[in-house]
Simulated scan of single mutants.
Amino acid sequence: MRADLDRTELADFLRRCRARLEPADVGLTAGSRRRTPGLRREEVAQLTGASVDHYTRLEQSRGSRPSRQMLSALARALRLGEDERDHLFHLAGEEPPRDRLGPTQHVRPGLLMVLDRLHDAPAQIFSDRGEVLAQNAMAVALVGETRPGHNVVRSWFTDPSTRTLFPPEDHETHSRIHVAQLRAVSAARPDDAQLGALVRELREGSVEFEALWTEHRVALRRAERKRFLHPVVGLLDLECEVLLSAACGQSLVIHTARPGSEAHEGLKLLRVVGVQEFGQRVK
C-alpha cells in the first residue's frame, strides 16, 4: 500500500533543491535578468519534460500525486544523490526504486555533471541493457530527443526508422555490436529479469536478432568509429568514446571529431542547428 503524499514537505524539498542549482550545473545557459539564485521553475519543467504549470503546482503544494516516471525525471533534473532520490519518492508516498539485480536507473550526479559540461560533443548515458538514461543538447541535435528509459537495442531490431540515422552499409556492424553487448551482460547477470525479458522478446520478434544471438559472439562496447546521417548536416564520421562505470552498470558515450576535419566542422554546424531548433521548440 502506498503512503500518503506529503504535499507541503514535497513542495519545500523541490524549492530548496531548485534554489541550490545554477543553470551551468545542468548544462543550461544563464541568460539575463536573474533576480534570485537557482534554476527557474520553467527550467526544471524543461529538464523533466513536464509542463510549467504542472511543476509549479507541485511547488505550491497543490499538485496531484506525481507519477513514478515524473519523480525519476525530477531526481535527474535536480541532480539528486541516491539518498535524496529516495527521500523524494517517500515524500510523494512512493517506494523508491529497487533494482538490485540490474543497473540502477538513477544516474550519479557526478556523471551528470560531466555530461552537462560537454557542450560541443554529443553525449549520452546508457545502462548496460541499452536504456538511454540521459543525453545532452548536442545528442538531442544529433539523434533526436529520447525519453529516459528508451531501449536502443529494442528499437534497433523492431523499429526500422531507427536505422535511417546510419549508412545502410553500417547496419550489420551495429546489429552485431548490440547483440554481442547484450550477450556479455546476460551472462554476467543471469537473474536480471528485465534483461531476460528483453532477450526473449527480441529472439521471438526479430529473425536478425535470433540469427546473431545463436552465433554467440561476446563483446562489451568500447571505443570505435561511428557514422551518422543527419538530415541537415549530412554525413558525420565521428570517434565514439565509451567511459564505463562498472559499479552501476552505466556508460557515458561521447562522440567527437578531430579538429580541422570535416566532421569537426559538421559538429560545429550541428551545434548551431541544434540551438536554433531548441529555441523554436521551447517558445
Rank of each mutant, 00 (worst) to 15 (best):
H106C: 14
H106S: 15
V107W: 04
R108N: 14
G110C: 08
M113G: 15
D116M: 06
R117W: 01
R117I: 00
H119Q: 15
D120P: 01
P122Q: 10
F126V: 03
F126A: 04
S127K: 00
S127M: 00
R129M: 10
L133P: 01
L133F: 01
A134Y: 03
A134Q: 03
Q135W: 12
Q135D: 03
A139M: 14
V140D: 09
V140N: 04
A141Q: 03
L142M: 12
G144P: 00
R147W: 10
P148M: 08
P148Y: 05
H150A: 15
N151W: 04
S155F: 06
F157A: 09
T158I: 13
D159T: 11
D159S: 09
P160L: 08
S161Y: 08
S161M: 09
S161R: 14
T162S: 11
F166G: 00
P167N: 07
D170I: 01
H171R: 14
S175P: 05
I177D: 09
I177Y: 00
V179G: 02
A180N: 10
Q181G: 02
L182Y: 00
A184L: 11
P190L: 12
P190S: 11
D192C: 07
A193M: 11
A197C: 05
L198S: 02
L198H: 00
V199M: 03
R200S: 14
L202A: 07
L202P: 00
E204R: 14
E204N: 14
E208C: 01
E210Y: 01
L212Y: 03
L212A: 09
T214Y: 06
E215L: 15
V218G: 03
A219Y: 02
L220P: 00
R222F: 00
R222G: 15
A223F: 09
E224L: 14
R225V: 13
R225D: 15
R227K: 12
F228P: 03
L229F: 02
P231E: 11
V232W: 07
V232C: 05
V233G: 07
G234W: 01
L235F: 08
